[in-house]
Amino acid sequence: MMAAVPAGAPAGLDARPVYELRNVTKVFPKRNVHALDRVDLTLTQGSFASVIGASGCGKSTLLKIMAGLLPPSSGSVRLAGSQVSGPRRDIGMMFQQATLFPWRTTMENVVLPIEIRDGKAAANAKHDAAAALLELVGLKDFANAFPNELSGGMAQRAAICRMLITEPAVLLLDEPFSALDELTRDFMNMEMQRICMACNATSFLVTHSIQEAVILSDVVYVMSPRPGRFVEAVAVDLPRPRTLDMITTPRFGALVDRIRNRLDRGAFL
């Protein structure tokens, strides 16, 4: 049976639930795959949660359901009090690839979600807000540059701005920095923490990296495959803001070990 998963509200934060999944199950009848089994998840305002698990454990399915790209077979998916039944502007998403469009300047890429939802005039009206976001991520001078002038890390910063421009209630991060080299990745993770704290964002990260999950998260959900379910929620009690130095502390090591043990067992259950 599934271990009882406590809703991870980090101490000291406003514990208002933003995103709630109750008993979410997903079955693909055609392929006879039981992708998700009774997943419960609560994201509270300003918290950062991660899900970690081996490839094929249902992480992507979970994220697609949370993004409104895929309907659950059963269970309830509620964001800010209303059922998620499709893509929504209050869901911000980021992928492994920045996917900036080369014929648009950085600024035009950032306001693209507004242009799609509200038209060009509304997008133009958002240029000031976009400029503020670009400044927040350190791309102020690249607003009018084209994406082929940006490095991989810079492109992902622009993608962060594009995700934030609609002022989403929740950020869904699908291995956002895993295509970057390790040095850039560490740096971008620290940037992500800074940006999330600055915006008091509620974030949900899917990752393969235990270290990345621990350094960023308040709670790490360990997922096991076939069917995909949470086997444990590990609360990370390291103080914020986190720094890369913490990676060498015994507490960090203990958390990593604990997650790794859960993953190993989960994979062979």
Binding site: G68, L69, P87, R89, I91, M93, F95, T99, E115, I116
Partner: peptide
């Protein structure tokens, strides 16, 4: 990735065609 991105932005089929597929 680009298709998924346009889906998450709630783009219509025509928007996807004119703003993404044709320029690409």
């Amino acid at each position: 990735n680009a298709r998924l991105l346009f889906k998450t932005m709630g783009a219509s089929r025509l928007q996807t065609l004119f703003k993404m597929k044709l320029p690409t």
